[in-house]
């Protein structure tokens, strides 16, 4: 028997990933249609399509940010930096840590290094686009830090999957910095003006 309530996870996704001016009436429309006999699979399809459409619109309206993120994250010569003996000795300061402490230490160092790069790139972007103010800078940074940290934990775990060398160095390793930077810029810079509905007086 079909539940009278639509999948709550799908509704939450819709409410969090779409702008409020769209998510509220859209969620109401989906609920109205669902209560007239639609299936949970139909509901999920509708939600995922709405999220994808919204995300692609967001990406199109902020293409400059995405290109900046791709350029900065691609420009870092990770392989040369990470395998450089001077860089390694600078990181370890002569300390020899047992596994898995060495792994956590490497993740922390990598995240710190990427955060430093992100700080420079974020300041440069905000400076060039004349959008720099301390509050937007800090909020961008606050969003980016967990993305970079968790992204690097994910990258470390992907090491065991034997991903082809080229893809690992030139794609996977660059993803935390890319997503961290793009998210920081999205938060720090106001987005494109969206069409909103006016609320009629009661």
């Amino acid at each position: 028997m079909k539940s009278s309530h639509p999948p709550s996870l799908a509704t939450r996704l819709l409410e969090h990933l779409l702008p409020r001016g769209t998510s509220e009436p859209l969620a109401g429309d989906l609920l109205e249609d669902y209560s007239q006999g639609r299936s949970a699979a139909w509901y999920w399809r509708q939600v995922l399509t709405a999220v994808m459409v919204s995300l692609s619109k967001e990406l199109r309206s902020r293409w400059a940010t995405v290109i900046f993120g791709v350029v900065v994250s691609s420009a870092v010569p990770w392989k040369q930096i990470w395998h450089n003996s001077e860089f390694q000795s600078l990181l370890l300061w002569g300390i020899r840590l047992p596994w898995p402490m060495s792994l956590f230490y490497s993740i922390a160092c990598l995240s710190a290094f990427e955060t430093a790069l992100l700080l420079v790139a974020l300041s440069a972007y905000l400076g060039v686009t004349r959008g720099f103010n301390l509050r937007s800078f800090l909020s961008g940074l606050l969003v980016a830090l967990p993305v970079v940290g968790l992204g690097n934990v994910g990258v470390a775990f992907l090491l065991v999957l034997h991903i082809p060398y080229f893809i690992f160095y030139y794609v996977v390793w660059r993803l935390p910095l890319f997503f961290g930077l793009v998210l920081a810029l999205w938060v720090a810079r106001p987005g494109a003006v969206r069409a909103e509905a006016t609320r009629l007086p009661a």
């Binding site: 859209l26 989906l30 939600v47 509905a197």
Partner: peptide
């Protein structure tokens, strides 16, 4: 999909071809 319908309507609104208002809950 309703999401595509909304995206189209918002695009039309941004072009000034459509207006919208929120009704009652």
């Amino acid at each position: 999909a309703l999401g595509s319908v909304y995206a189209t309507l918002e695009r039309l609104q941004e072009k000034g071809l459509v207006s919208s208002n929120l009704g009652e809950a």
